[in-house]
Nucleic acid binder design. Sequence first.
DNA 1: AATCACCTCAACCGCGGATGA
DNA 2: GTCATCCGCGGTTGAGGTGAT
Length: 241
Amino acid sequence: MTRTPYFDKNGKKKGAWSKEEDNKLIAYIERYGHWNWSEIPKFAGISRCGKSCRLRWVNYLRPNMKRGNITKEEEDLIVKLHGEIGNKWSAIAAKLPGRSDNEIKNYWNTNLRKLAKQDQLHHTMPESCNPARTKQNLILENAVKDEIVLTSSSTGSSSENSLGHTSSSSFMQTFDIDKDGSFWTDPFLVEIDSPPMNGCSSSLDLAQASSCDMLMDDEFVWSTMNLYDGYHKQLQKCDML
DNA sequence: AATCACCTCAACCGCGGATGA
DNA sequence: GTCATCCGCGGTTGAGGTGAT
């Protein structure tokens, strides 16, 4: 399950690594360490770019790499950490000795995302978030039949978040609400610069807002759900519910 | 047995941050 | 302050594996 080796226009080899290349890289790094990835291939006698060498080492060749399936304990930890920090694969990998970020990312994408999707994309809205509740309706403006639009006016002056997005006005998220109280959101209907809370002590995590840059992506939808949850918590904190 | 569709995961790509000249 | 380079990260790709028909 590897890519067919080939040489690019610069004469650098791409694709699957051979045993010989692995051995050269291991031998060199064990003797001299990885002091400069861009120089290593030249000194190690490997016709690849430094980036490829680094990736091969980090994901496959470095000592104490675990082989085999992710254990239940590891899976639980991945789920827990992903819930806390999102797609920070390197940070998650740091908590799982012998596992690479790439391995965890692949595991998530092939095994856990489906489960997360099932759990998150159509979960039941909390009772306190039910649009039928009177106080909630103060916040859930523009509720029309099965569609709800959350809005929050800004505090005035514009600001720029870490992504360079100017935040001047609103957080707007459209949700479709089913009769049973579950909800769904359409990525196309998202309009968020950043989500400042009018009169509240804190705004939502900008990282959550940044996730809204993603379109038509399961992760995006899930992030949007988290955003909604976070928004809801903020409303509760501000005693607006 | 042959074909197809879907899945897996090693490897690639592009981007942004850090650093130094 | 600007530019070049390196490094690391997260998203994406695609060849091979596998199960269904």
